Simulated scan of single mutants.
Amino acid sequence: MQSQANIITDPHERRRHRRVKLSVLGRYMLANRREFPCQTIDVSASGLALTAPVRGEIGERVVAYFDALGRIEGVIVRHLEQGFAMTAILTQAKQEKLVNQLTWLVNRKALGLPEDRRHERIVPKELNTTIRLPDAGATPAKIVDISVSGAAVSCAKSAPLGTLIHIGRRRARIVRLFDYGMAVEFALPLSFDQFDENVIL
């Protein structure tokens, strides 16, 4: 992407990433841990503007989560009439991933591609967990990947679709079976402010 847009407070600073107009629903959490719904106005790999009911303070840390974009952490840099603009503090790898996601989302509509509503999936640093089936004790398992709404795990035991189980300390329901493992949907989604590679089930 050509250099153009970061959301910044200094009008003389050159913008680094091109902003794209994009309307995506999500949630954000301010420093006091209060959570609110939001919607993107435009997004770049280094910042985004949101329509939001509570604007927070300039310089305040904010964590936002969007199913289509994942977790984005930053600070509020400018108030807008209906919300605020925030930076996006990302590693180089996450920044490149966000650019790819933005390209997909923008081109999807232009090309008439079907909407992808699946949550972002990541591979956590800690892969080891346990599965507890209704009629069995704890069974060691490894996380294949995880989203805020569920996970795929490999393990030696399984149960029929729809079975309620525990994965780590979380209740979940088996929604898909595959060779040497299963996909589960959590009874309660993960807190988006803790959804990153350090998440532990």
Rank of each mutant, 00 (worst) to 15 (best):
A159D: 04
C155W: 00
S149N: 13
P140R: 09
A136L: 14
K142W: 14
A159Q: 09
A159R: 08
S149H: 05
H166G: 05
A151K: 02
D145A: 03
V153N: 02
P134S: 00
D145C: 08
A136D: 13
I167M: 15
K142L: 13
I143C: 10
I167P: 01
P160W: 11
K157M: 09
I165G: 01
C155M: 12
A136S: 15
T163I: 08
A138F: 10
V148F: 04
A151P: 05
A156Y: 01
H166C: 09
L164R: 15
C155S: 11
S149C: 12
K142Y: 12
I165R: 03
V148M: 02
L164S: 14
A159N: 03
P134D: 01
L164W: 13
T139Y: 08
V153M: 10
S149A: 13
L161K: 11
L164E: 13
K157A: 11
G150D: 01
S147N: 08
D135V: 07
T139D: 06
T163K: 04
A152E: 00
P140M: 00
L161V: 06
A152M: 05
G162H: 02
A136C: 10
I143M: 09
G137H: 06
V144C: 09
G150E: 01
I146W: 06
I165Q: 03
V144M: 06
G150H: 04
I143H: 08
A156F: 05
D135R: 11
I143V: 13
A151R: 04
P134E: 04
A141L: 11
K157T: 12
S154A: 11
A159W: 07
I167H: 05
T139I: 15
I143G: 09
A138L: 13
V144L: 09
S158R: 05
A136Q: 15
V148S: 03
L161G: 02
K157L: 09
G137N: 06
L164V: 15
S158L: 01
A152K: 12
V148A: 06
P140A: 11
I165E: 00
L161W: 07
H166A: 15
C155G: 05
S147Y: 05
L161D: 04
H166P: 05
I165W: 01
S147R: 04
D135H: 14
A141Y: 08
D135L: 13
I143K: 06
K157P: 00
G137P: 01
A141W: 11
V153I: 15
A156I: 13
A152C: 10
D145K: 06
P140E: 02
A138M: 10
G162D: 10
S154P: 02
V153P: 00
S158C: 02
T139C: 10
K157R: 15
P160G: 11
A141G: 07
S154T: 15
L161T: 05
V153W: 00
K142N: 12
A159S: 10
A141D: 03
S147A: 07
V148C: 07
A152R: 12
S147P: 07
A156D: 14
I146R: 06
S158N: 09
I143F: 10
A159F: 05
A138Q: 14
T139V: 14
L161F: 07
S158Q: 06
S147W: 09
